[in-house]
Each structure stands twice: as C-alpha cells, then as structure tokens.
Design a protein around this nucleic acid. Structure first.
Length: 802
RNA sequence: GCGGGCGUGGCGGAAUUGGCAGACGCGCCAGACUUAGGAUCUGGUGUUUCCAACGUGCAGGUUCAAGUCCUGUCGCCCGCACCA
C-alpha cells in the first residue's frame, strides 16, 4: 500500500469531525480521565512546533485511556485576551475581536490538521461574554471575601507609550514594545490577596503528583521562612522592629539598616541632623530602575542616621542606624539588624563603612576575611547565655528569652506578594465594579453580568495612562447599584491570567448558563487527572489557578482542594542550531510545512521521538525522515499478512514485552522509548518476513495513539471490525514476556569471556557448572583458587579467582 | 549568591535502577536495483596498535561488578535574585 498520507489524514479527520468521535460522554457511571493541556494564546503567527509536543503527548495518553475503557475529557479552547492582539489591532486598525476570530480560525485549522482527539463540542474562548461572565463572577466573590482590594502602588510606566506595563512586559529595564525607558509611577491598582493563601498553596503541594522541579519552584517562589520579629529601642523613643531568621546571632548585631522608604524617617525628620543627605539618598534610590536595583555586582551604599541610634536589646549596647537600598521595604518589616560576622551583605556593608564585626558563632574562617554563614556547624561565642550552644539550640533559647522579656516573638514570612490585578487596556475582562462617591467600591449585582466590553472605535492607550475605557463616558458614567446615585465604572481590565485561572472548570460543563459549571459535572470530572504545560507558567498561571481554585473550594463552588492531580512539563523544541526558535534568528519551523511534506502522523511521531520529553531538543529536518520511513514500512506490512489471529511462536514473547513496554512508557511519558520499542519490533517482524493478522492488529493498536490516521486506515484495509478507536487496548501476560532461553555472559574476575544460551529458569548451580565446563573457562581457572561464584539470573555468571 | 537540572559515539538519545555501555533513529561507509538518486532495499558503523586493550566531563573511593553509589573537582543549562 502506497502511503498517501494526504488523502488518508483528510479522510479520517473529516470522519472524526462529523461523527464527534472523541466527545466526552455524559455517562457518569464510567471511570473518568481528565487530560488537560494549556490552551493556547491564538497569536497571529499561528501554531509553533512547540505546541504540538505537549498536545501530542496528552493526545497519546487520552487515546490510550479511551481504548482502556475510560470516559476521557480532552478539551481545547482559546486564551484570547491579551496585549499582542490589541497591539496588532491598533497598528492595523482592525478590531481585536476580529483579529482574535481570525487567529482562532487559523489555530483551529492547524490543530485539526494534526489529528488531536480534542472534544471540540466543549471549545471555550475567554473573550466570549458567556465565558468572562464567570470570570467576573469569581472576581466579585473574591471582592466579597475581602480578597480583592485597591491599593496605591508603584507600577511600571513606559515614558514613550504613556502606558502602564506589567512586570513581564519590562525587559532589561526598558519597554518590551518600544524599547523606551520604564520608570516607576504610583497608581491605584486592584490587588488580589494571594498571600492569604500562601500556607495553603504550600501545604497543598504535599498532596499532588507534580514533577519535583515544579514543586520546588513554587515552594521557592512562596518563600516561607520562620524566624523572629525583634524589638529594638531607639533614642527617638520609637520601637524599631526587625525580622530575622538568625535570632541566635543577636549579640553580634552591631548596627541596623532601614529601607529608604521606611516611614520612621519622616517621623524622625526633626531629630535627624543630616536629613538633606537622607533625602538625597531616598531620591537616588527611587530613581533606580528595577534593572539597576538587581544588578549583580554592586557596591553597598547607604547613609548613617545622625541623631537617632538604637539599643541592642540583649547586650544594651548603643548601635548606629543606616538607610540603604539593600534593605527592601516590601519584605519583613523593612528594617534589619545587621550581623556582619554572619551575613554576607552585612559584612560587605560593614567593611565599606568601617563598622565593628563581632564574631558570635565560632567555627568558621577568619571573620575579617569573610562572613561565616553556615548554620550547621558553628558554636555560639561572645553571646552570654548562648555560649557553647549550636545555632539551632541558640535559636530556640533566644526565642524563649525574647518572649519572656517581651522583646520579640516568633514570626513567619513569605516572599510571595499580592497579585497586581489591573491593566490599563481595552482587550481584557472589564472589572465589574463601580466607584460611588458615597458607598466606595461596589460590585455589580450578579444579574448584570456579563459586563460587556463597550463597542468602541478607538482603543488606543490614552495620554494620561488611564485605560482606553475611561474615555467612553457614557459607559463609565452609571448609577451606584447600592444607593442609586451617580457613580463611575472601573475602567481597568483584568490581566491575561484571569481567564486561564479557572478554564479547566468550564470544560466540565461549558454551556451552562446558570453556574460556571454544574456541581454534578464538577464532582465527576474534577480534579484534572493529568495537566501538562510549560515550566514558564509554574509561578504564574499554575500558582494563580491553584489560588483561585482553593478560594472556590473554600466558598463551596468546587469539590476538590486542588485543581490538578498531576502536573508534568515538556521541554522546548529548539531550532536546528540549538537556539530558541525565533523570527529574528530565522530558525522557525512552521507546522504547516512539516505536515504538508511528511503528514501529521510523521510529525506527531517525530515530535515524540525527538528525545526525553522533559528536556529541550533541537529540531532536525533529517531525523524526521526516519519516522516517515517507519510508517511506510508499517504500511508495507499489510501485504505480508498471514491468516492466523494468534501470535506466532517466534514473536510471541516479543509482542508481550512490547505491549508491556508501550503501555507503561505512555503512562510515564517516555514516548521516545515506546516508539523505539515499536521500531525494534518492526525490525524483528521484518527479519522474520511475515506477520499474522493477530500480530498486525496488536501492532497497529499500539501505534494508534501516536499515528492515529494511518493506523485507522490500515485497520479498515485489513478488514478488522469497526474502527480502531472503538477497540480495546492490547493486554500482555507477564509470564509470556520472557523467551524460553536467554543469553548470559560468563565473566572471570568481572571480565567478559564468552556468551552462553541457557534456559531462562536454569538454577544458579547449573549455570555456574555449565560456565565452568566451557572451553577457555576451565583453562582460565586451572591452578587458581576460586574465591567467589555468582549467578545473576538471566544476566551473567561471574567467577572470581586468585 | 540561592534553588533545580544536566555532562554517554559524528548527531538526537537508550541502559530493566549496581549486572553485556551505546537500544531506536539520524548521519556516514559499502553493496543491490536503477537512465538517474537527495527514492527504496541489504549489510556495516564507539576508539585504537583489531585473536586484544581502552572507553560514559575530570580525580579518587566502595564493590566480584560502577554511566548508575560515595568524596572531591571542572563545565553547561534553567529559575529566582540584596527576601535579612
């Protein structure tokens, strides 16, 4: 049979489409499997070859699960709000809605051309008012529980676009869009209190099956630390509180540092004799961009406060206070106690300003040469009642002392910050809030949802940095839902992460007009059994959606505490030159070209065969031909069929082993070795020269999840019953995986001497005796003492002689 | 700096978790069929001084046996980055 992939793939895709072959069933008595891949942002560039790597992998899992009798939900949709679409719309004077519709059309065509078994009847789109109605609804619930609040805060401001930028839109301190300088500007922003869920997000990780690097990255991002909040008296009379994880080193605190933004500086301005110098430093610090503040190699700077000092609470010594930008206002109390002997940053600062360095943990190198920061080995010294204790013991004892004397208490801190939720843009979900001069911020009644984006001619950012929506006065001006008085709508929109924070729930019941999804549907389908996506979303989308889900769980909307039972991540597909694919590097591979030249089955197979799924791999235009050859050879098999429905004697063990391997490899996402096993089996079949119908049936069923079109075609051509996708996944018999005889290696002193064919179940004694009787072996042992004889079943005999 | 991961042929990568290193594929070499080959098929392909020895970044160690375990060291990639 000639491998006419174009005709074959079109034929089966049309049939799957018209028959809705892969729609999830509403039969809640069946065992379910919910497989999820990150829905794409439909960009103008179309599908990237990276997208199908993830989609194919879970398509394989889904197709196999269906054959194994599961009711599988494998859905797809569009995460379609976002800046690139809006920018394109502005530049080309086309409404974002139209741009989005066109891009989706192209994406959908490309996804269908690859033969994914998505349930298209559940397709969703975050820009559809019927969808974002529920995004807005969730926001209102967050607001009602006090988890959404408005706050004045410093944001990124592009001086050229006159527009607020998200952190991820600032690249190396300049605007990603125009390359102009980005400065800080204080604006009122909507925030979501994700910090309230920090502990739950951390603890929840213990109950889910995520790959370890995802868990660690989230744990680090949340950044929980335990320490002490300690009170220092000052000569100004105020108590200056600091947070420290090393309260054991308190005797070594020789100075203090507050951040340039610390409120006490204003309060103390009359006492401070060098206020001019302080103000100048504050101004410098405020001017610094994020880029400058995070530069690696940099000198510590600061100013000593003249007029206010502090008292070390444990030894009563008077110590100076500095301001320095190495202390962050946003973490802990915005002030620190400095222990130069045991903290690298404090050490650098102390060296620069000539401050005393007092060793309080002995066991390191010379304290004048470097700070000794190791917590595991040192012993306390110069520390009064702590002397002689280990660091851990000293922490406990110091904490007791602080508590007894009302000098401090235990404290937990997080690196996680609240989520800046507003964007001054048109193409996003409107925030369903009005501002009433009398009632303050009031959410819309749920009956008024969705609050639709107003139809406008111009959605360009305004000169003032307000959202484009602010110019639409008849939309902005409204009545307060509470008191009926004149009020104004919120003109900021939600960030792109909003719609994707709950989309997996909507798939369970996508057409529901009354709820975001019915209780029954959620109870049956949730949690997502397997979610695959990019590492770049670990501390954004993945964390945000866990937060929303946990909130929805707490208010009784969803039945599970965690949204995803399992999370895996795929590596990037790089350009041929090993660099990241990009237009500017000119190494982009277009899926349309590949499918056109080799077909969807070959492309799917190649993307799975390219290497370890979790690692990045360069695209190789030559290697893909090996996958095509493989499929052509499979087609050729259908001309060598013999009548038997059984496995042949020669290949029986081979088939059982391959069924076993492919089955477990798919579950472990080791698609490359599953394909290698099938190739290997094909080589064995080819060597034998014929294949039984039974063997062929198993072979194409195993291959089906990888190459669904050609295997359906071969199934039909061979006259098997029904369609392949309606059959059963092959089973294997553990006992039959083993050949009757195996080859073992005979070693003398660990060096291989020869190879032997033996019965698989030979006893150790027989194997050793047989090995010793072999020519060459006997001579080698002759006249020497046998120290040890080993037999590793089915592997080797090793005779150790002296 | 901290955290995570990785170093195996010319290339992408395997190795049942301590048991024949290099599966499978690409590339390359030779042959067959061909008017032709960037098609297909068959065989070969870690290195070298080829009946043998050496080989998984480097140096040690444990073991009958090490890519795999331990100690040290070098290099690369990703994430966070002055988080007290």
């Amino acid at each position: 049979m000639k491998y006419d992939f174009k005709t074959i793939e079109k034929k089966w895709q049309d049939r799957w489409d018209s028959e809705n072959t892969f729609a999830a069933r509403d039969d809640y008595s069946m065992p379910k499997f919910y497989a999820l891949v990150e829905f794409p942002y439909p960009s103008g560039q179309g599908l990237h070859v990276g997208h199908p790597r993830s989609y194919t992998a879970l398509d394989i899992v889904s197709r196999k699960k269906r054959l194994q009798g599961f009711n599988v939900l494998y859905p797809m949709g569009w995460d379609a709000f976002g800046l690139p679409t809006e920018n394109y719309a502005i530049k080309n004077h086309i409404h974002p809605e139209i741009v989005t519709a066109n891009n989706i059309k192209n994406f959908k065509r490309q996804l269908k051309m690859l033969g994914f078994s998505f349930d298209w009847s559940r397709e969703i789109n975050t820009t559809d008012p019927e969808y974002y109605k529920w995004t807005q609804w969730i926001f209102i619930q967050l607001f009602k529980k006090g988890l959404a609040y408005k706050k004045e805060m410093s944001v990124n401001w592009c001086t050229s676009c006159k527009c607020v930028l998200a952190n991820e839109e600032v690249v190396n301190g300049v605007c990603e869009r125009c390359g102009s300088e980005v400065i800080h500007k204080v604006k009122s922003q909507w925030m979501l209190k994700i910090t309230e869920y920090a502990d739950k997000l951390l603890e929840g990780l213990n109950d889910v099956n995520y790959i370890e690097r995802v868990k660690t990255q989230q744990r680090n991002w949340i950044g929980r630390s335990t320490g002490a909040q300690v009170k220092f008296k000052t000569t100004a009379g105020d108590i200056l509180e600091v947070y420290t994880t090393r309260c054991d080193t308190l005797f070594g605190a020789t100075y203090m540092v507050v951040s340039p933004e610390h409120p006490f500086l204003e309060k103390w301005q009359d006492r401070l004799k060098n206020m001019d110098e302080i103000r100048a430093y504050q101004k410098e610090a405020a001017k610094k961009s994020d880029f400058e503040r995070t530069e690696v190699v940099k000198d510590k700077t600061g100013v000593r406060l003249d007029g206010v000092t502090a008292i070390n609470p444990v030894n009563g010594k008077e110590i100076p206070i500095f301001i320095s930008d190495y202390v962050l206002v946003s973490y802990g109390t915005g002030a620190i106690m400095a222990v130069p002997a045991h903290d690298t940053r404090d050490w650098e600062f102390a060296k620069k300003f000539g401050l005393p360095i007092v060793e309080v943990v002995a066991g390191g190198e010379d304290i004048e040469k470097a700070a000794f920061t190791d917590c595991a080995t040192g012993t306390l010294c110069n520390s009064g009642f702590l002397n002689g204790l280990s660091v851990e013991e000293a922490k406990v004892k110091m904490l007791e002392y602080l508590k007894e004397n009302n000098l401090g208490e235990e404290k937990v801190n997080f690196k996680l910050r609240d989520w800046v939720f507003s964007r001054q843009r048109y193409w996003g979900e409107p925030i369903p809030v009005v501002h009433c001069p009398k009632c303050g911020y009031v959410t819309l009644p749920e009956s008024e949802l969705p609050l639709k984006l107003p139809e406008v001619d111009s959605y360009e950012p305004s000169e003032t940095g307000e959202s484009p929506l602010s110019k639409i006065t008849d939309w902005v001006n409204t009545k307060c839902p509470k008191c009926g008085g004149d009020a104004q709508r919120e003109t900021d929109t939600m960030p792109q992460w909003a719609g994707s924070s709950w989309y997996f729930l909507r798939y369970c019941d996508p057409h529901n007009k009354k709820e975001l999804a019915s209780k029954e549907a959620l109870k049956y389908w949730m949690p997502v059994d397997w979610y695959n996506g990019g590492m770049e979303h670990t501390t954004l989308h993945l964390l945000y959606s866990r937060f929303w889900h946990k909130f929805l769980y707490d208010i009784g909307v969803v039945p599970t505490a965690e949204p995803y039972a399992k999370r895996t991540s795929h590596g990037m597909i790089l350009g041929e030159n090993g660099e990241k694919m990009s237009k500017s590097r000119g190494n982009v591979v277009n899926p349309d070209d590949i499918v056109n030249e080799y077909g969807a089955d070959t492309m799917r197979l190649y993307e799975m065969f390219i290497g370890d799924f979790e690692k990045s791999a360069p695209w190789s235009p030559k290697s893909i031909r090996g996958c095509k050859r493989f499929l052509e050879r499979v087609c050729a098999l259908s001309e060598q069929l013999t009548d038997s429905d059984e496995y042949s004697k020669e290949l029986e063990a081979d088939f059982h082993r391959t069924v076993k391997k492919v089955t477990s490899d798919i579950d472990e996402l080791k698609m490359n070795t599953a394909i290698a096993a099938l190739m290997s089996l094909l080589n064995d079949i080819a060597a034998k020269g014929s294949i039984t119908r039974g063997e062929f049936k198993t072979f194409i069923t195993l291959l089906n999840p990888f190459a669904p079109h050609i295997t359906e075609e071969l199934w039909e051509k061979a006259g098997f019953e029904g369609e392949l996708n309606g059959t059963e996944w092959p089973s294997f018999d553990e006992a039959k995986c083993q050949d009757a005889t195996v080859e073992i290696v005979v070693q003398i002193n660990g060096k291989i001497r020869l190879k032997l064919q033996v019965a698989a179940d030979i006893s150790a004694a027989d194997a050793i005796a047989l090995a010793k009787s072999q020519p060459g072996v006997a001579e080698a042992i002759e006249g020497k003492t046998v120290v040890k004889e080993l037999y590793v079943p089915k592997k080797l005999v090793n005779i150790v002689v002296k």
